[in-house]
Simulated assay, not measured.
Amino acid sequence: MPTSPDSAPLITLLRAGRLFAPQPLAETDILIADGRIAALGNGLEVPAGWPLTVVDAGALTAVPAFIDQHVHVTGGGGEGGWGTRCPGISAAEIVSMGIATVVGVLGTDSVSRSPADLLAAVRGLRADGVCAYMYTGAYRVPPPTLTGDLQRDLAWIPEIIGLGEIALSDHRSSQPSPQELARLVSDTRVGAMLAGKRGICHFHLGDGDSGLEPLRRLLTDTEIPPEQVIPTHVNRSPALLDDAADYARTFDACVDVTAFEDPGDGLGAYDAVAALLARGVPAERITMSSDCNGSLPEFDAAGRYQGMRVARNTALIADWQRLVQEAALPMEQAIGLISTRVASVLGLQGRKGRIAAGYDADIALLDDDLQPVKTLVAGRCIFGPGTTGATR
């Protein structure tokens, strides 16, 4: 991400107490040059007189900064009328949770909100120091786009990295046919290929009886690779989670768990990840996201709106911390759930999700309770002591 010359040091030497890259490393010094990691080592030095900023984090643990692949950056909601539109999210709210990268998404409301609004919000977050991308489209089919064509959106707009969140198995869905789904995913794939992107299709799963069957049929009846299809909210109910476990094993596919603050009849992210692991789904096929600033509406059996809460990203970090603290996963595998594996899912694996030479210097510094204390994005500290970013 570009930063102005006076807003970020050219060279930074970060000295941490421990380092997970995501695997544990003996090295604890990270040399950062022009926003990227230049070298790892111990006792690293640079020639006298070079423009250097030293960050002393000897009491903290350095990990790859987190990536949230499902964020309503313009706010979600609206299912209960104009007074139920959720607010957008700020850069400060994002980076305070150790998150350096987000992917913005539109949901139910693509009438008062649009891909153009979403792109403006994404670029605003980038101006404030966060690395932000977006999906084109929304719940409905055919999806709203910026250029009038999915392939052109993917090919011509750098911030667009996929399509989403298309709603399935939900009374708010457009109930797309198998042929419509196949066309959407194929167009996304080709447009992304032209621009050298992964071009994932991010699918919202509701609590309808069909569950993941539309995606099973898509992968069975077409040549679409499973890595392009990402179902989310799979922990909405125990039955859907069982379906997701079978889907992940059958197709060797990734599934995304949502960190609901109050899962209601579903499972929280900690319980959902533990259940997927117990059902034989490898940790490498599970990711977590927040759905933050989206609405958490409640409907009765007839589909009538009953009320709403606004999702936050605090549950994502709390559930992730619990997975490590209660030894459900070792640290290096847990980091994959919200960083390394997410980068791979999004097609950003050559730049993000690892602390290694050549990668973006996106680093979260955690205390002994795994709480983020500092967040660096492209080498720039935009949360915590020594902050230089404008997190409005």
Rank of each mutant, 00 (worst) to 15 (best):
G347S: 11
V55T: 08
E27L: 00
S174D: 13
G307A: 08
P263F: 04
I200G: 03
R15Y: 00
A378M: 03
P142A: 10
A259V: 12
D207G: 00
V95F: 04
S169A: 15
G386A: 12
T101D: 14
L154T: 00
K352P: 01
V95C: 13
A253Q: 05
L296K: 08
I94M: 02
L329S: 11
I161F: 01
L205Y: 00
G386T: 12
D367A: 11
L40A: 12
S289Y: 00
E284S: 15
W156I: 05
A120Q: 15
G199I: 01
G104Y: 07
G336V: 07
Q69T: 05
G280V: 12
A26I: 08
S4V: 01
P143R: 09
I161C: 10
L241A: 11
C86T: 13
E261V: 06
L44T: 11
G206F: 00
L329E: 13
V373A: 11
Y305C: 06
P330C: 11
P51G: 10
R172K: 06
G77Y: 01
A245T: 05
N313C: 12
Q23T: 14
P225K: 02
L163P: 02
N313H: 06
S90C: 07
I224D: 07
I67V: 14
A272C: 08
G58Q: 14
T188S: 07
G389Q: 05
R36E: 14
V111A: 15
T145S: 12
Y133Q: 07
T388K: 01
A120P: 01
L366E: 10
L13T: 10
S186L: 09
R279M: 14
A283V: 15
Q325L: 15
E79H: 05
R15H: 02
L376V: 10
G208F: 07
P22K: 03
I200W: 02
L25D: 15
V95E: 05
